[in-house]
Each structure stands twice: as structure tokens, then as C-alpha cells.
Design a protein around this nucleic acid. Structure first.
Lengths: 207, 207, 207, 207
DNA sequence: ACATACGGGACGCCCCGTTTAT
DNA sequence: ATAAACGGGGCGTCCCGTATGT
């Protein structure tokens, strides 16, 4: 932590500090001065790499997005089937949401801190969620599920609910149930044996 | 001057304006000056009724909480059974989340704007979610569902996911699927036909 | 200094502090924060009274200009004739320029700190000098001197030289000779018998 | 590349650029970066030749001082008598002060930009003025004038007034009268016709 | 010798929540 | 109720002097 950190470039130190502080305290409560103080960097260095705070927020969100997908890929690497990958994702989410470090979803936080839908930071957050939806849809389709888009959207609701739970409750929140809930929703989308479950019938009446 | 708005007390005008502005723009971006300007009261009047902005935020959240439960009670009044009440809640949530006025959950926003878990505003937000959990649990128990607490927590994930979807996506988000997902989770908790739940089997195959 | 200063309005405290600091250290080296700190005023109070630093500089120069003319009027009040008033002015200038508090002419400093001739602060400084020229001209004309404008300009050169001397040398500079030089120039402009000089006679007319 | 400018050493290019920029825009408003940009050298080169900005300012002032005396010597070379040399100086000053390129006296500017009397740059400016005083005194003494020091100081007031006029007014200022005023002061110091000089007597009456 | 980056610091202008005077 | 005041914080800019790489 000490020696290697000195080796990092100023840009990298700024970005890592910004990611951490923004995530822990929000985008409005973290000022430029605090970021430069905690990253040990001159103000001019920050503004050389990031022309404005908004640009730094965007870069921070993109960094978090990258780390998110690295994490998802790592968690799903050992799963053999698409369905297992979906379950692995939610197992990881459930665990992460109950960890002490977890403070919810950085993109939900960004969307909350920048409520204007047209704001770039808001758009970046939506783009992340769309990527999640795409991944869910692709896995659901690969698994041969019915209506993969529908399942993907249901699963996104669960995941965002888990992140919201993590933000508010911390370790003891309802996020503990996200795996079970995801399993239930996934099962209900399985093409096999839909005959006896009530869910299917009501579903039929919905459409 | 002299219209119906004059009928409202200064406190009421302040509170309604605060609720609206806080919800639409967030707690940090809305300042005292703007609230007094749009509510047409003097600054002194505001500080006589609410000793600080934080207290006003708390009062605002309590007001929203009250309106939330009035809304929930109204939406579930016509439902005959506890299960129907649960469905009615999610039908209402699904509709609300896709309405143009909906900007997500005010309590999620408060938790995001005041990330410190010990902050009073954060605690008020958690208290609201606990009330929702209690209502879900009571309804699930009344319906004779298995593990009502578990179902309640799963449903809260869905609901918070729907609110998060509303915040980020607006009308076209995945919140449209919240009713179907809720139905699926509710059905899966029904005591009837517990014989062949896939969750168990899949769980065995997962490991 | 303590009790009465507390009584002064914020605007007055700001202005007095600005006048003093600008005069002692220049307009660029004195920042808004320093003025705020030394005047014991909030930043917003300053920007309510003076929309920008430039406006504060202008107000400061106008204040100095007002004090300058009060000083000139007081110093010339007892002089009976226009010529005596001119002499009185230069006697006062000579004394002031050698006092410890004197750091030269605030308007010369402003013109030096804002070298762009089109800059408002530069124009304000020029306006002051024009007022001095007018006063000199009027007095010279009232005294019946030949070419009063020419004498006024010569006297302004002397005065500005004295201020420059005060700025650079302090008490021991050539400003000590400004009275004698002014007298010489004034005498040379006298219409009566320029060949024979009339120090004695003039003295008679002065009193 | 390869032009005549390349002939100049880096030190010379830096110094010439610094002299020009400092004179045109002041010492505070001209930064190191601008000097290196306009002189086409690397920052390291500048700091190799001038250890600090202050040292560069001093070198710049010394350069200006050298050019000043070259100019004075050239202007007075053709004058036959010391008195003619004095007049020649003021004729040159009067013309220079009304030229478009003239922005006043660089040393007055330095004294204004570094108001602290103990500051080296301020001292350098004073040293220049002392040299002028010495030259004036020497010429006045050579001309056989009475009280050459007194005349020298009076003439310095005029000269500094002319520079100040040049700074503030440009071509149309009172500097046009500096020759006439200098002549008047010089004549008043001539030993001829000392019988009834008002200056002496007047001086006695002053006290 | 050039160019780029860096660390540290000050500054200008602005906004906010809160209190006091009027 | 109007208005001013107050302390604190925030963003973006500028500058000086040093340290790199090349």
C-alpha cells in the first residue's frame, strides 16, 4: 500500500481516490480539494487530467463499470451453463451486498446525485444498467428461457433492490434473499413443465 | 393573495414546497432560499417551524411516509384477501413507477443523499423500509404463506428495484415487470403444491 | 479603534480595509480573502456590496479621491488668494510626501497595476489627475497667470514627481524640494514684470 | 530555426523577452510560463540562467538601466555645455514620454509592483533614481549652478512626473510641458542675476 | 536543450445554512 | 417580514519552482 502507491501516476491516484470518496460519501459531498488532499496531488495535476469535476465523475463511473464487469466475469467464469452463470451473479451480488464495504450501487448513487435525466452522469449510470440488462438477456436466451428480456428486467429489479438494500441496511438487509428470489424467477421462466404452477397461468392471463 | 393558498398555514406551505423540491431535485441541490422563495414565506418563519434544514428534511420524509401509507391503504382497500392486497400494492407500484411524475423512492434518495448510516435522515429512511417490510410480512402471514418474512424481504427487493428503475429510466424501465415478478415470488411462497420446487434440486446441482 | 469600528457598517469596514490594503500592498497582491479577513466580514457581504473585485477597487479609488479633495480643501481653506492656495497645496504635498505613512499616489499605483489604458481602474485614475489639472488651472486662471493650463500641467508634473519620490524614497526623497520648485514655476508664470521677479511683492499679495 | 534570432543566446532571448513583457504588462502579471513561451526556451534553461523570477526581474532592471544611460549619453553627446546637456535630457524625456511605445518609467513600475522598500527590486529602482540624481547634480555643478543638489532633486521630480504622465496619459499628457518647466527651474538656479532671486528669499519666508 | 508533468499554494467568484437587526 | 450579516465551503484558474524523460 505504501511503496506501490507512490509508483502510481498522478492520474491513477486521483482516479482511485475519486472512486473511493465518491462511492463512500457521494458526489456532492466530496469536493475537489478533498480529492487532491487524499490523493496527494496538486490541483493543477487534477485539472490537467480531468478538465472538470463532472469529467472526473464520468471517469470514475467508467472505472467502476470496468471493475464491475471484471468482477462479474470472474464470478461467472466457473459456472458451466448460462443458467448457472445467472445464479452465480446473484450469489455474488447477495454476498457483496451484505459485505461491510458495500454501500450499494455507484450508478444508483450517481443517478440520485444527478437527478436530471439529461445529465451526462445520469446517462452513464443508465448505460451501465443497460449493459446489465443485455448480459442478463443474453444469458437467459442462451439458457433457452422464455421471454429472456422479461426475465432480464425482473432480475435487474432484484439486483437493484439488493443494491438499494445494501445502501440502506448494510449487512443485515433483505439482500440476503436475493439469490432465492432470483432462483424463483429463473425457474418460473424455464420452458420445462410450466403446466402445474399457478404463476404460469396467471402469466397467461396477463398477456 | 387571498386565494386558496393563503388558507394554508405557513408551516404547511413550507412543508409541501420542501417535499416537492426535495423530491424533484434532491436534498443537497435544494437550498433554504429556494424553499422560502417558492413557498412565499420569510426565512424567519421557516426557522421558527423547523429549527434546521435537517429537521425540515425529517419532517418532509415523515410527510411523504404518511402519504405513502395513505396511498397504499387506498390501493389495497378493495382487495379482498391479503394476497390480493400484496398484488394490488405491486400493481400500484408498477403503475406509479412508470408515471411521469415518479422519480423513484424519496427514502432511497434520502439514504443516498445522507450516506452516513448514523445520520438521522438515513435512519428515517430505514424506518420507512422497515414499515414496508412489516406490512408485507403481516400480509404474507395473513395469507398463510410459508416464511412470510422471507417473502417480505424478496418483495421489498422488487419494490426497491422498481423505484430505482423509475429513478433511472422513467416510464420505459424494467419496473413494468414488477407485478409479474411479484406474482411469481408470491406464488412460490404459497403453501399449496410445495412438492416439487425446483429451487431445491437446482441448489443441489449447483454445488 | 475597537469600539467605534464595531459600529461601522460592513460596507464601510470593507471599504476602509480595502483602501488601506490596496494602498499599502497594491491591488494585485491584496486578495479578496485578505480583505475579508482583516475587515471581519463574510464573503457574501462583500459581494453584496461590491459585485467584483474591480468594482471594489473603483469604490476604493473613489473613496481615496474624496478624501484627497477634503484634504486639499482643508489645506487651502486658510489661503486668501488663488496663488496662495497653489502654494498651500504644494506645501501640503511636500509634507505629506515625506511622512512615514505616505506611499505615493494611490492613482499612480492603480494606473501601474492596471496598465491597460482602457481598463476602468486606469480611467478612474486618469479622471483623478484631470480633476487635479482642473483645480490647478482654475486657481492659475483666478490668479491671473499667463497660460494657466500650461502652468497647471507643469505643476502636475511636480506633484506626480513628488508622489513618485514618496513611493520610492519615503521621507528622505527629493519631494522636499517640491514647494520650492512649484514656487519657481508659479513665479515664472506671473504676468507682472517677469524680468524682475517679485518674491517680495508676491508675498505681499499673498497675505 | 537558423534565423537571426537563433544567433542570440538563450540568456539574451530570455532577458529581452522579460524586459519587454515586464515593461508592457507589469512584473506580477507576467509569469514565467509566458516568458519562456515567448522567448522559445525551456523552463530549465531559464532557471539555469536566472535562479528565480526575482533575479530575472533584477537582471531585467539592470538591462533597462544600461539602455537608459546609453540613451541619455547619446542624447547629450552633441550638447556643448552642461546646461545644454540638462536641457537635452529633458527634451529627450519630453519626446519619449509622448511616444506611443512609452509606458512610463520601468523603475517606477518596479517600485510600485514591489512596494516593500526592503525588497531588492525596490532597491534597484531607487539605485537607478540615485544615479539620475548624481548625473543631474554633476551637470548642475559643472554648469556652476547654485545648490546643484537642490536643482537636481527638482529636476528629478519633473522627470518622474513626466514618466508618470506618460504612464497614465500616453501621448497627450502634461509631459509635453516638461522641457519648459525644466528650463524654468534651471534658469532660476543660474548664478547670473542672483541679486534678488525669489527662491532664496522665499525659502526663508517659507519657514 | 526541449517538453511535459508535478507538488504546493493562493486567488476570484460563488453558494449555502444560519443568525441578527430592523 | 425584509434585509443584511456571518462563517464555511466549493470550483476552476494561475503561478512558481522542481523533476522527469529524451
Amino acid at each position: 500500500m505504501g511503496g506501490t502507491e507512490e509508483r502510481l501516476s498522478a492520474r491513477e491516484r486521483i482516479l482511485q481516490t475519486a472512486v473511493r470518496l465518491f462511492y463512500e460519501h457521494g458526489y456532492h459531498r466530496v469536493g475537489i480539494d478533498r480529492i487532491i488532499a487524499e490523493s496527494g496531488v496538486a490541483k493543477m495535476s487534477l485539472y490537467r487530467h480531468f478538465p472538470s469535476k463532472d469529467k472526473l465523475v464520468v471517469a470514475s463511473l467508467e472505472r467502476v463499470n470496468g471493475e464491475f464487469w471484471e468482477w462479474i466475469d470472474a464470478e461467472t467464469a466457473r459456472a458451466a451453463t448460462p443458467e448457472a452463470k445467472l445464479i452465480a451473479i446473484f450469489r455474488a451480488v447477495g454476498e457483496a451486498a451484505r459485505s461491510k464495504e458495500c454501500l450499494g450501487c455507484a450508478f444508483q448513487g450517481a443517478a440520485a446525485d444527478f437527478p436530471d435525466n439529461d445529465h451526462l452522469n445520469h446517462q452513464v449510470a443508465i448505460a451501465h444498467k443497460n449493459q446489465v440488462l443485455e448480459r442478463f438477456t443474453k444469458l437467459a436466451a442462451s439458457a433457452g428461457f422464455m421471454k429472456p428480456k422479461r426475465l432480464a428486467r425482473q432480475l435487474l429489479l432484484l439486483m437493484d433492490g439488493a443494491w438499494a438494500s445494501a445502501r440502506m441496511y448494510g449487512a443485515k438487509g433483505p439482500a440476503a434473499e436475493v439469490v432465492a428470489a432470483a432462483q424463483t424467477l429463473i425457474e418460473a421462466s424455464r420452458p420445462e413443465a410450466p403446466q402445474a404452477r399457478g404463476g404460469v397461468r396467471r402469466k397467461a392471463t396477463q398477456k
